[in-house]
């Protein structure tokens, strides 16, 4: 299982990476915004995407929309981990096809729960 973690803050990427390692996911790659993430995704081999929303360049919501619009990537599980917590934003993410939505600050337990919920649904 190869996971791509996208966040513009390296501290947050490290936190998520460590938490994922703790959950047994050791194969993690990183990107700092949608523009750098998209080529990595298109190259193939990524099984799960964890992304922030608010990033310079391409935002997480735009990345999600691009992923869903791509024939090869449209079934990729996407978990959004973000400080954006306006109701309309959560609704927008849901409509764009997000698989899970975690608001920062979050706990290790929340990440674990949302990951397993997504895996249960996609049958992984």
């Amino acid at each position: 299982m190869k996971i791509l973690v996208v966040d513009d803050f390296s501290t947050m990427r490290r936190i998520i990476k460590n938490l994922l390692n703790d959950l047994g996911f050791m194969n993690i790659v990183e990107a700092d915004d949608g523009n750098t993430a998209l080529p990595v995704l298109k190259k193939g081999g990524i099984d799960f995407l964890v992304t922030d929303w608010n990033m310079p360049g391409m935002t997480g919501i735009e990345l999600l929309k691009q992923v869903r619009a791509d024939d090869k990537l449209n079934t990729l599980p996407v978990l959004m981990v973000t400080a954006e917590q306006k109701r309309e934003q959560i609704v927008e993410a849901a409509e764009a096809g997000v698989n899970g939505y975690i608001v920062k600050p979050f706990t290790a337990q929340t990440l674990k729960e949302k990951m397993s919920k997504i895996f249960d649904r996609v049958g992984g």
Binding site: F9, T11, I15, A83
Partner: peptide, 9 residues
Amino acid sequence: LMAQDFQDL
């Protein structure tokens, strides 16, 4: 580790 999330926020 989790306490460091303040930097991003």
